[in-house]
């Protein structure tokens, strides 16, 4: 059961409170830049960043880069997440598969995937494949580990009940195991989304001809600090969107769980 210690406050207050600090930071940033205490080469004013974003959006350049980044993120997530989910399922469900694969996977997990960048460039060159490979590798482990533990955490007494009611194989998996593992799997999805953007940022700054990371690196060459800041903020917005999507997924799929029920 989710609960906090404090007594409930009015609804509107609860919605406004989280935004007070960000707004205050923005306001003081604008003031400091406008007063000339902060060089625009270090950090341009929020208004300058906004106008840069507007110019980029109007020219269509922003959309092109966003599309490229989003496609990389989605494809990489689908590949890495799919493989991670598969291994989580079979290793969680079958002792033999766990014995066979888990040790190997745990060893690979200890290699920071960003350390592979030089190798990845040698393997794939600077094309799309290398970036997808890195993103897929980044999301693989959170999904794998949490699916594995989600399956293992399924209440054994419910499985016994399901068996005694004639469920087995696929029906037992669909009605008991998978729904029972879902809270764990969705935790993995949220972690994976974080890793997905992080990996993408790094991959795109190395060598790319499109994408938000490319936009940022390009702007750096020409000392366009405002565009660099736009790129950074875009990553933040995309990260937030991914988190919101994961939350919506949890609310939809875990409606039965009082801890996830909409307030």
């Amino acid at each position: 059961m989710a609960s906090t210690i404090s007594s409930p406050s009015p609804r509107w207050l609860g919605q406004i409170t989280p935004w007070l600090v960000p707004v205050a930071i923005l306001a003081s940033w604008q003031a400091v830049a406008q007063l000339g205490w902060l060089s625009t080469r270090i950090l341009p004013a929020p208004s300058a960043v906004l106008s840069a974003a507007w110019t980029l959006a109007a020219s269509g350049e922003l959309l092109t880069h966003l599309k490229a980044s989003f496609a990389r993120a989605a494809i990489g997530f689908a590949i890495g997440g799919g493989i991670g989910f598969f291994f989580g399922l079979i290793n969680g469900g079958y002792r033999l598969a766990e014995n066979l694969f888990d040790t190997t996977l745990q060893m690979v997990r200890n290699v920071p995937h960003l350390a592979l960048i030089p190798l990845v460039i040698l393997w794939f060159g600077i094309g799309e494949e290398g970036k997808l490979f890195l993103v897929a590798l980044g999301v693989f482990f959170p999904i794998y580990l949490n699916t594995f533990h989600g399956i293992r955490a399924v209440d054994a007494s419910l499985v016994e009940m399901g068996r005694s009611y004639g469920l087995s194989g696929w029906s037992l998996f669909r009605h008991v195991i998978l729904p029972g593992a879902l809270p764990g799997i969705l935790v993995g999805v949220r972690y994976a989304l974080g890793f997905m953007w992080l990996t993408l940022i790094v991959a795109e700054t190395i060598s790319a001809t499109s994408g938000i990371g490319y936009m940022a690196m390009n702007a750096r060459e020409f000392l366009q600090t405002d565009i660099v800041v736009v790129a950074i903020l875009l990553y933040a917005v995309l990260g937030k969107l991914a988190d919101v999507a994961a939350r919506l997924l949890e609310r939809g799929l875990l409606r039965w769980n009082p801890a996830y029920a909409p307030a």
Binding site: S157, S164, Y165, P179
Partner: peptide
């Protein structure tokens, strides 16, 4: 003869992700 007997456990062991009627309909 497994289908001819049903077991009630010490705890109800309802599937929390299924509604009450879907729990009864299990299997």
């Amino acid at each position: 003869t497994r289908d001819e007997l049903r077991l009630m456990f010490q705890d109800a062991r309802l599937l929390p992700w299924r509604t009450v009627v879907d729990n009864v309909a299990l299997g």
